[in-house]
Design a protein around this nucleic acid. Structure first.
Length: 657
DNA sequence: GCAATGAGCGTC
DNA sequence: ACGCTCATTGCT
């Protein structure tokens, strides 16, 4: 065979992020195939690596070293996943070996020795009836059946059995002998979709990839996918890299959930991974959810994807009646216990009516946690810097200061209503379950999620305290966002909603609407008496979008607003976090693309002031890849010069306060 | 003028 | 962390 092996060496050094050539000794000639794990002598010591390719000759001018060992003959890394890892690294200013560590689970030798007994099933094509409520839904499934690489964005109707719809799409693809990959934010959603596919195509037609199942089981399932034993794969964000053969469909459910953002370098989002895969491998892509993100809206505006949405009257028939009640003009319930719980009369009545119909009532409360920020004293719009549109915040006793560029704002005037007063907002003024329980004596009270405070990066409840479902009949269910037990509720009360909206985060409105819709979608239609009460100013755009159940309209307005302010996804941004001296020196070290603007430095989010700082770089979208290239070159220069203190580079960071 | 020694750098 | 290059130093 070809005498040279091209190897991706696992090294943390950014300037060595390229293949290295080795000679293949005769005894390894057969096993040294593309995709196998190898050990090589690298800079005097043995290092792990991936054999990417065999070649006739090397461009390396010096002598080549010999391949030390083939760790395993299993070609775990498929050519498609190798190309995907390279593309993701290039877009995130990261290294290929960092991406491969996210993409391929650790090897488990004993598991590798076991034979795979499954054979891929070819289920019959399912009915597309469930998609009939959406004008372009059936056409999308027809496109899947014909093997076309359609890109679509689907807004599920309230009450939709979306796991069943996604299962129908996946099985449609499996029915023509191709693969499907479904990526969901958490294990609960993954289990629901797994069950829906199994119900439609049998238990052997689908496999779930999840980190929590332990190394042996995890690797066994992953190998079954790699060896082509199963065509439909579901899982959380790491599954976006799953080596599904002949990928016909990729699905991303609820792309606004921050669990889709990888917390390890180089921080790729599932949306980016699947989007790159669609480009490289050519499968169909469906981005789906009740709500719609600005990023997804952009993919519609550019014509990359088309939308699958129900008509207005179908939406109206499916949705509960939504009432918004402002916090200030709240008319508190007359009932003394409800008054004590600060429950508005409208909310109290909606809950009472649902309970009298023997239906459960969902009460969504935000997670505890305090983030002081500033909003307009009158209309509650988030107060933003006039120079860079970053969020204003109070630092100590001083005047309002921009958290991005550090500009001190002396004479603030709200651009929306002209008011010159600012007010501090605080999230997490959570009413206790006991208080609400007293307002409805005799009604079973259950809580789900979010008991403790201090979630490091996600505001959802931690696992273990989340209830999957509840007993039938009347009950009062207090849940934090994402932890709502599965049920058909008679009413939902969304408390502290305005606090959720006033968070000093770019995505606060989008995120609030996403959470409200997830809860409101579990409520019966208005015709059956279903009611949703949201405690927030009805003039706010996100509240109106909930009342009218208009996720598309909100996403359009959100994207337009971000374009106006120069925020992602209308532009590309990079966050560079490091020690103050490191960040201060970046200006001259950076060779930035045209149209780049620097913001800051400011204190890095979640860090004590003065410890670590953040520099933001903003470029037009067309320069995104060039920006990533410039930042990769920056990191390469730093690692080549052996600079000790690390610099974190994050493209389009999820957290942009 | 040239060998011996050590720091620095690339890493196939 | 090995082994190479190149600069410095000290000796003939």
């Amino acid at each position: 065979m070809l005498p040279v092996a091209r190897v991706c060496v696992d090294t943390p050094l950014a300037h060595l992020d390229r293949p290295f050539d080795y000679l293949v000794p005769a005894e390894l000639d057969v096993t040294a195939a593309p995709g196998v794990r190898v050990r090589v002598r690298f800079a005097g010591r043995l290092a792990d690596g991936w054999l990417l390719d065999r070649a006739e000759r090397s461009d390396h001018p010096g002598p080549l070293a010999w391949l030390d060992r083939v760790v395993s003959a299993e070609p775990a890394l498929s050519p498609q996943v190798a190309a995907l890892a390279r593309a993701v690294a290039d877009r995130c200013a990261g290294t290929m070996s960092d991406v491969l560590r996210l993409a391929v689970p650790p090897r488990h030798a004993r598991t590798e020795a076991e034979p795979v007994t499954l054979v891929p099933t070819r289920p019959p094509r399912p009915s597309t009836g469930g998609w009939g409520r959406y004008p372009r839904g059936v056409a999308f499934l027809d496109a899947l059946h014909q093997g076309r690489a359609a890109h679509a964005c689907w807004q599920a109707l309230p009450g939709e059995d979306w796991p069943a719809r996604l299962a129908e799409a996946a099985v449609t693809v499996a029915a023509v002998g191709r693969g499907a990959l479904l990526v969901l934010p958490d294990h609960r959603d993954t289990a629901r979709v797994h069950a829906a596919v199994a119900a439609l195509a049998g238990p052997d037609a689908v496999i779930t990839l999840a980190a929590e199942s332990g190394p042996a089981r995890r690797y066994r399932r992953w190998l079954a996918v790699r060896r082509g034993a199963v065509r439909i794969v579901v899982g959380t964000r790491a599954a976006a890299f799953a080596p599904v053969a002949d990928l016909g469909l990729m699905v991303l459910w609820d792309d606004g959930d921050d669990l889709h953002a990888e917390p390890r370098a180089p921080y790729p989002h599932s949306r980016l991974v699947l989007g790159q895969r669609a480009v490289l491998e050519g499968g169909a892509l469906l981005v789906a959810g009740y709500a719609r993100t600005a990023e997804t809206q952009l993919s519609l505006d550019t014509g990359w994807a088309h939308e699958i949405v129900a008509t207005r009257d179908v939406v109206r028939a499916a949705a509960a009646r939504v009432t918004a009640i402002g916090e200030d003009d709240t008319q508190l319930a007359r009932d003394p216990a409800a008054r004590a719980a600060r429950l508005p009369a409208v909310a109290f009545e909606a809950a009472r009516a649902a309970l009298s119909r023997d239906r459960p009532v969902l009460v969504q409360v935000p997670r505890r946690g305090y983030v002081p920020s500033l909003a307009c004293g009158q209309c509650r719009a988030a107060a933003r810097c006039r120079r860079c549109a970053g969020p204003l915040a109070l630092r100590g006793a001083g005047p309002a200061t921009c958290r991005w560029c550090g500009t001190v704002e002396a004479g603030y005037r709200c651009p929306a209503c002209g008011c010159d007063r600012l007010r501090a907002t605080v999230i997490g003024a959570r009413r206790t379950a006991e208080e609400l329980g007293r307002a409805f004596p005799g009604v079973p009270l259950v809580t789900s999620g979010g008991g403790s405070s201090g979630a490091p990066r996600s505001n959802r409840a931690s696992a273990g305290e989340v209830l999957a479902d509840i007993p039938p009949g009347r009950s009062l269910v207090i849940a934090t966002p994402g932890a709502e037990p599965l049920a058909r509720y008679g009413a939902a009360l969304l408390l502290d909603a305005s606090a959720l909206l006033a968070r000093p985060d770019l995505r606060a409105a989008e995120e609030a609407l996403r959470r409200w819709m997830a809860a409101a979608a579990m409520v019966e239609p208005a015709a059956d008496g279903g009611r949703v009460v949201v405690v927030a100013e009805s003039s706010l755009a996100a509240v109106q979008a909930l009342v009218r159940w208009d996720p598309a309209g909100h996403a359009r307005a959100e994207l337009a607003a971000r374009a106006e302010l120069g925020f992602p996804p209308s532009v590309r941004m990079a966050a560079l976090d490091g020690a103050p001296a490191t960040v201060a020196s970046l200006g001259e070290a950076l060779d930035l693309p045209r149209g780049a603007a620097l913001l800051g430095p400011v204190p890095a989010p979640g860090e004590p002031a003065g410890e670590r700082e953040r520099l933001l770089v903003r470029v037009p979208r067309s320069q995104g890849l060039a920006l990533a290239g410039a930042l990769a070159a920056l990191q390469a220069g730093r690692s080549a010069r052996k600079l000790p203190d690390p610099l974190r580079v994050q493209l389009d960071p999820q957290e942009l306060a």
